[in-house]
Computed example of a mutant assay.
Amino acid sequence: MFGLTPSPESKRCQNLPVIRVPEERSLPDDGLGVRFYMQDVLNTLCQQYKPRSFKELKHLIQPYHLVVSTTRNKSGRVGVSYGIAKALGYKSRFIQGYKVHPNLSGPKLERLFQKNSRSKLLPTHRQRLKKQLDTVFKLFKTIHLKDLETILLEFQKLDTSLEFNQMGQPKSFTIFDKSGYIFKYDEIDRKLYPELYLFNLIRTRLLM
């Protein structure tokens, strides 16, 4: 009546091929595959986030096994090159940024960092984050340190990273905000809180 046909009784199953990571080897001399990989990762991250420094960019690319090397000549012009981390199993020479992609050269990235740093929305994002952190710490009398990231994610949808030193004490706290900006703990409204605002809270309100 409606032109429908019954679905087949049997389902087709197809096994996906298993792609294994090769043992350590040298990349081809032209490095085309490496450049395309670098270009894809870096362009995607610069669109998804709003990095304001090479330090932030280095932090973003670590999960993708990329490394960044920067130099600055006498005139102040910055040069950048990218490589593949050896831990991935490859041996890669560094490739100059402009060869990976024109927009990934040192001067082009510095202009991007400056543009992101001058955004008039930054104070608004900081103020919102301060309120979100305050809400969580007021809601819980104590928080176990190992649960901090999970609690901030569940109750405020904050993607955070808490790093520790060799003594097991917190040394850095990073917020990967939904706005695309990356904030360190000491950027959350310095006018209202001392520089170690968040870490004072960690020491007094959180359990190790």
Rank of each mutant, 00 (worst) to 15 (best):
E195W: 06
K130F: 03
V21Q: 14
E154W: 08
L201Y: 10
H65A: 05
R72G: 06
D189G: 01
L139S: 08
G33S: 03
F199Y: 12
R77T: 15
L112V: 12
G89N: 07
Y98G: 01
V41C: 01
S92R: 00
S119N: 11
Q132Y: 11
D186C: 03
E154C: 03
F94E: 11
L109E: 13
F113E: 07
E163W: 07
P22E: 13
R12N: 15
Q132R: 14
Q14P: 00
S7A: 06
D30M: 00
P17V: 08
P107Y: 10
G33N: 07
K157H: 15
I151N: 05
C13A: 09
F164E: 05
Q14S: 11
P6M: 01
L206K: 11
S119E: 08
F183P: 02
F164R: 07
T204N: 15
L153D: 10
K178Y: 15
L133Y: 15
L16V: 09
P28K: 04
I188H: 12
V68R: 06
K131E: 14
I151M: 06
N73Q: 07
K146D: 14
Q156R: 14
G168N: 02
T142L: 06
G89K: 09
F94M: 03
Y185S: 06
R20H: 10
T204Y: 13
I151R: 04
R205P: 05
D40T: 13
Q166L: 04
H101V: 02
E149P: 04
L139M: 10
